[in-house]
Structures are given as C-alpha cells and as structure tokens.
C-alpha cells in the first residue's frame, strides 16, 4: 500500500484515501464542439502508456477531495512528485528515472542475483 503526498494536505497519506483518475495535462479543447474527429480521437482516446515517467491525475477523494497531479514511474510504481492541479509539468531529471536505487518489479528481478 503506497503513501501518497497530497499537495493540499501537505503530508503523505495512505493510498486508501486516494483514487487514480488517468493521464494528466490533457486539456479539454476550449472549442470542443468544433474540433474534428481526428482531434477528438487524439484528445479523448489516445494515450501514450509509457514505460517509465508518466504524469497522472489523482484525487484525494477520502481526504481533502482535491484533484492533483503526480509524476510517477510506471516501472517502480514510485511517485516522483505530486503537485497541485493547474501547476505546470515539473521538469524531472532523467537521473530520477534511471537511478539504480529505483526498484524494479518482481518480474524484472526474478532469478537474478548479483
């Protein structure tokens, strides 16, 4: 069970109080009624599903109720940073992603011993 830092409550809380809500920094088009089918597809359906750094939206639903954003590593499941909704994407050093201390999944370490 993860601990997640809520940028509004300013402390780490149990994952049980949170809900994941999908990718972050995908703005709803202002003129949504006028966009093309391709634009709508891009906005609504297409996601990158990256290995490694991802920006996500979370909600402290059983806490302060606020939606916020998180930079997370999909390999280790680790939260790298959380920040308030509306704040720009933080620039994270690439090192944060390749750091040897970043844990890997069980599957990745299976059978390996150094």
């Amino acid at each position: 069970m993860l601990l997640i830092h809520c940028p509004y409550c300013e402390e780490q809380r149990s994952e049980l109080e949170f809900r994941a809500v999908g990718d972050a920094h995908i703005a709803r088009p202002e003129n949504i009624a006028a966009i093309s089918d391709a634009e709508f597809e891009e906005y609504f359906f297409l996601r990158d599903n990256p290995k490694g750094l991802i920006f996500e939206r979370w909600r402290h639903i059983s806490g302060c109720g606020r939606f916020f954003n998180a930079a997370r590593d999909t390999v280790s499941d680790r939260f790298l940073k959380t920040y308030k909704a509306g704040e720009p994407k933080p620039s994270l050093p690439i090192a944060a992603m390749t750091d040897e201390t970043v844990v890997e999944t069980y599957e990745a370490t299976e059978g390996r011993a150094e």
């Binding site: 040897e100 201390t101 844990v103 890997e104 069980y106 370490t109 390996r112 011993a113 150094e114």
Partner: peptide, 21 residues
C-alpha cells in the same frame, strides 16, 4: 523489500546487497 541480494563467495552465502527501501 525488493532489495537485491549479493553472493558472498568467501562464505558462500547470499547477503543483503543493494537496498531498495
């Protein structure tokens, strides 16, 4: 804890190697 064990050749044992937490 997802730490990686290391093999200690001298004592022929797996010991804690790289810590993850």
């Amino acid at each position: 804890s997802r730490g990686k064990v290391a093999f200690d050749a001298e004592t022929q044992r797996f010991l804690p190697g790289i810590y993850a937490q």
